[in-house]
């Protein structure tokens, strides 16, 4: 294992050397011609948590939403550069958007379970969209996904209750279960705990560490402590002079928070701006 300057832990592995689940090459996102994120290039290591951090306006969420082509919905949005899922260029028509989005799941900032569906129906919604009809398959998937999301024990007696009856933290874990049920390879999380209390936040952070054994996670977070706690690799973005987000530094989390390479990263993690 190569040594990384500033790290003395002998157990340390550099996530940049692991196989990549996704690769970003010169990725830029623009809205109506105005660039919001420019020239981002890094690899997302498989079965690890990658955190995108940076102040408001640095383009973290914009970048994240380009990874499952959610910008396709936004008028005037355009994505350039190359984004690979495995070997497939996701913007070059190699993969239908619906298939892409079932391979790359997403959890949003505010818990957004389908309000008219029950807990069970929410958990299997993605499978039903993908054409799974057999009840035994759906039942098994619901149990497995809800278990993975650390929710099964508290909801197994009331699977037919409406999702709105759950607490905020439970709703967010239901959304995680809903995304996991489709068995995605990558899970995108857009500030998944920003609307939650500290205890619910802690449970979801623990869940992420558990989940990375089977799924690659990319998380956007405002909370630097959260990035430090859960992620293996951290990408720091910052708004440049023309107000477009730029990649300042992509380093192993341990290194980025202890011995960052760029002075601007140091200023940010020490709270001097942002």
């Amino acid at each position: 294992m190569t040594s990384v300057s500033g790290i003395t832990d002998p157990q340390f592995e550099d996530p940049r050397l692991l196989p990549a689940a996704m690769s970003l090459r010169d990725v830029s996102v623009a809205f109506h011609g105005r660039v919001a994120v420019r020239d981002v290039t890094f690899d997302v290591p498989a079965n690890r948590v990658t955190a995108l951090i940076g102040p408001s306006g640095s383009g973290k969420t914009t970048l994240l939403r380009s990874l499952n082509r959610l910008h396709d919905l936004t008028k005037g949005a355009s994505v350039s550069g190359t984004i690979l899922l495995g070997d497939t260029d996701i913007y070059q028509g190699g993969i239908p958007t619906t298939v892409l989005r079932s391979r790359i799941g997403m959890v949003f900032q505010r818990p957004n379970p389908f309000p008219t569906m029950t807990i069970y129906e929410n958990a299997v919604a993605g499978l039903r969209f993908n054409g799974v009809k057999k009840k035994s398959v759906l039942d098994a998937a619901a149990e497995s996904a809800l278990t993975s999301a650390d929710l099964w024990d508290s909801v197994k007696q009331r699977l037919n209750a409406h999702a709105a009856t759950l607490s905020g933290g439970e709703q967010q874990r239901l959304c995680i279960a809903r995304a996991l049920a489709v068995e995605p390879e990558v899970l995108l999380m857009d500030e998944p705990t920003s609307a939650l209390d500290p205890i619910s936040t802690k449970r979801i952070e623990e869940l992420m560490v558990e989940l990375k054994k089977r799924v690659t996670i990319v998380i956007v977070t405002h909370n630097m402590q959260q990035a430090a706690r859960v992620s293996d690799l951290t990408a720091f973005l910052l708004m440049g002079e023309d107000r477009a987000g730029e990649q300042i530094e992509v380093s192993p989390t341990l290194k980025l928070f202890s011995a960052p390479e760029d002075q601007r990263t140091l200023d940010y993690i020490q709270g001097r701006f942002g």
Binding site: S102, M106, F108, F114, G126, F129
Partner: peptide, 26 residues
């Protein structure tokens, strides 16, 4: 809510499924 439409699409639903299973029921 737009976030429900996005939730639906992010699970791999088509636009048509999103209309029938998410927008109209909501």
């Amino acid at each position: 809510p737009h976030e429900l439409i996005e939730a639906s699409l992010s699970l791999g639903a088509t636009r048509w499924q999103t209309i029938w299973k998410t927008i109209l029921p909501t």
